[in-house]
Design a protein around this nucleic acid. Structure first.
Lengths: 203, 203
DNA sequence: TAGAATATGTACCGGACGTTATGGAAAAGA
DNA sequence: TCTTTTCCATAACGTCCGGTACATATTCTA
């Protein structure tokens, strides 16, 4: 007796687009952080009232998790693209240049939502922080796997510490996010990338 | 008619040690961030009441700036020590190993107060963020100067982008702080440092 | 056309926040 | 001892927080 996703809704239809509202909420969380974003900030940016928000998304925390899903799917697509690059070096370069585009987009807040949410330290953000850290771990695991493949390909020297190299690359990405959030220019971040690539093994 | 800092205070002497209280406040800010630290958190950790806190430190923001002074003087001493190292590589290594000690001390909160405060995004933290960013800029300028000296010493190749190299090293340090605050182990951070040193030019 | 079901806007809840007024206790100088 | 100064403690202030009743409005089903 599963309800096939019928087109005809029962009651009064909502007057706002859930996807648009969620995108607006993501923008608020991204620029103000989880705790820094008040319900008033959110409802104002989303163009809805609080009861509508609670009816559609549950509560503030659930809204954040959904915004984080959207962030991963839309803004972090470059990370999945990066893993498909042919060499370890190209993977790293794609990661870093993609991070610049994502963190310095003129129409999005600066910095990385993951870094912002993981360094937010309030008590109420504990579950938020845990979610972000877990997502990062699985993303990092994928990169480890990619680098191990690179080593099998003879693309990375045998003596390389894969886990260390992965954490190292992530550290650069996170540091770039910190700097992007602190007012760094795109040119400055590009010089960080150039410097990193200068040091990267091979070529 | 300047009042020489007389030893004899007029009225009733305060019953708590200002330095100890400030150190306790630093611990709270460090682990909870500026906005995450409530006045109740602070007064409880400092062992004083709110009126005492306001009388001695002004308000929450002034207390934070003084805690930040203490943090720079005590916990970031290794950065000034690092600049005295003989080679650019030794400077970088001292920075990174010092960062591990500072960010992973067993008796201090994990991570870096500067990174935490710069990524805190609430509206009330704007002045806090500006202060932290400004301090970081002057610290970074000192490292640029040190690397320029290294270039003059023939210690860094001429083609190196000093500013890029500095931002790159800071990015690694900031990324390590993010990871330290996210539950990374000391061993993991040490592998980041080893990887970074593996790639560092020279030796 | 009645009724069920859902969305909306207003107005409000208890609680935590940073900050301060008040009142009394304690220690210094006279 | 008296005055002055500064301290400590309680309790309250006004404001904002996340979250919610309530009544009204709009759609579908029957």
């Amino acid at each position: 007796m599963e309800k096939t996703s019928t087109v005809a809704a029962k009651g009064r239809p909502r007057e706002f687009c859930v996807d648009n509202a969620l995108a607006a909420a993501l923008g608020v969380f991204w620029s103000k952080g989880y705790e820094g974003a008040s319900m008033s900030d959110l409802t104002e940016a989303m163009g809805i009232t609080k009861p509508s928000l609670y009816a559609a998304f549950g509560n503030k925390e659930a809204l954040f998790h959904k915004a984080l899903d959207l962030y991963e799917n839309e803004k972090l697509e470059y990370t999945r693209e990066a893993l498909k690059q042919p060499t370890a070096r190209a993977v790293a370069e794609h990661f870093m240049r993609g991070a610049i585009d994502a963190q310095m987009s003129s129409c999005d807040p600066k910095g990385c939502l993951g870094v912002i949410s993981a360094t937010a330290c309030g008590a109420e953000a504990a579950s938020i922080k845990a979610d972000v850290i877990q997502r990062r771990a699985s993303s990092q695991a994928a990169l480890v796997e990619r680098f191990e493949q690179a080593k099998r390909d003879g693309d990375l020297p045998d003596h390389v510490d894969i886990s260390g190299l992965t954490s190292y690359l992530y550290a650069i990405l996170q540091g770039m996010a910190v700097q992007a959030g602190s007012g760094a220019t795109r040119a400055e971040l590009e010089r960080v990338v150039e410097t990193s690539l200068m040091m990267w093994p091979g070529r």
